[in-house]
Amino acid sequence: MKILPSSLRTKRWYIAFELICDEKIDEKDLINSIWSAGLLLVGAYKMSLCNIHVINYNGKKGIISCAREEVDTLRAVLAIINKIDNKKVAINVLGVGGSIKKVNKKYIKD
């Protein structure tokens, strides 16, 4: 299947986040908890519009991509996550950007 031309693709923004936790959290557990929190707060329809993908995650910081119009929804979803795998956590959004390179440079490698 051919990929869509860039003008027809949905516009994406990249959210840099930081995990405040005393222990290490796996990427799989993080993704599961984001999805379950999202489904609880905004439901399946809104989560489908969000189009969330975890781009990278190093155990402490990471980048999530989401649809441009739903950045605030994702912020809210990340705010309500308080436990992952029975470990207390808080997810802090460091910043938002239009490209992975910029977000990486500005928020992850500082």
């Binding site: 405040i20 707060l41 605030d72 929804t73 912020r75 809210a76 990340l78 705010a79 309500i80 308080n82 207390k88 956590v89 808080a90 802090n92 959004v93």
Partner: peptide
């Protein structure tokens, strides 16, 4: 009540929209 309960203001405003 602890460091996990404190949230950045942008995330709080995003939640308050609900």
């Amino acid at each position: 009540t602890d460091k996990f309960g404190v949230k950045p203001y942008r995330q709080m405003i995003a939640l308050s929209k609900f």
